[in-house]
Structure formats: C-alpha cells, structure tokens
C-alpha cells in the first residue's frame, strides 16, 4: 500500500516537472514561458519532497522533516522570483504576443518609450494641446 502511494507521488512529481520544462521550451513569448515552470516548482517538486518525507519517515525511526523545510522555502520564494523576473522583463520591454485590449488600441499605437518621452516633453511645455496620458 505504501509502495503505491509513494509511486503515485513520485510519478506525479516527475510528470509535473517534465511538463514545466516542456512549457519553458514550447511556449511562444516570455510572459507565457514564465507561467510554465511555476507548476514544476509547486506541484512537481512539492510532490517529490512529500514522497521523500513519507519514505524516510517510514524507513527510519523518527519523523524526517527536512524536506518540509525545502517545500516551505520553495513555496515562499517562487512567487517572489517570478514577480522580479516579470518586472525586469517589463522594464526592458520584452515584446508580448498578447492582443491589446479593444478600448486601448489608439493609445498603444506608439511604443511605450515614445509615450514616456512625450509625457516628459508635455511636462516641460504644459500649454501643449495634444493629450498623451491615457484616461484611466
């Protein structure tokens, strides 16, 4: 019975790890690629670490809790690193394949850096009539 539980956990973890890396290779642009490996972190490695906990707890005398520590650490740090990566990618303006929302098309005809540049010029010359800042 324990063997079946362990096999199930290990196979689930390995398959999710595999799918995460498959997504990293196959998806089309950076922002969708960012989505793939998070599955590998939480479900994949989580399942493997729980399997390891169960295995060493039943094999040895005491309860083995090292792996829980790693699971907690990964669960805490994965969103932080994904957030930092997405922020860096937005900062250096990696292109996205996502469609522009319908009501924003006219604003986004220019690239973002042009908007920023024009906004700076507008600040210097406030009497200019053309509006650059989008209404929120």
């Amino acid at each position: 019975m324990l063997d079946y539980l362990l096999s199930f956990l290990i196979l689930t973890g390995a398959i999710f790890t595999f799918i995460g890396s498959l997504g990293l290779v196959r998806l089309k642009d950076f922002y969708t690629r960012l989505h793939g490996p998070t599955k590998a972190t939480t479900l994949g490695v989580g399942c493997l670490l729980i399997a390891s906990t169960v295995y060493f707890s039943t094999r040895d005398a005491g309860v083995s809790l090292h792996e829980i520590l790693i699971t907690l650490f990964l669960l805490i740090t994965a969103p932080v690193s994904a957030h930092m990566l997405a922020k860096a990618a937005l900062h250096i303006e990696i292109p996205s394949l996502a469609k522009i929302p319908e009501n924003k098309v006219s604003e986004y005809k220019k690239t973002r850096s042009e908007v920023v540049k024009q906004a700076g010029r507008q600040e210097v010359n406030p009497s200019s009539t053309e509006t650059v800042k989008p209404d929120v």
Binding site: G44, V45, S52, L74
Partner: peptide, 19 residues
C-alpha cells in the same frame, strides 16, 4: 530574462533530481 528563467528552472529540476 529567458535565460534567467531557464537557470531558475534548472535549479528546481536539480532539487527534484537530488531528492
């Protein structure tokens, strides 16, 4: 950022492999 993300995935896969 793609390469940084690949490094991130690489170390997570390494943890799985070590386990």
């Amino acid at each position: 950022p793609d390469r940084i993300l690949a490094l991130d995935t690489l170390y997570i896969n390494t943890i799985a492999m070590l386990m």
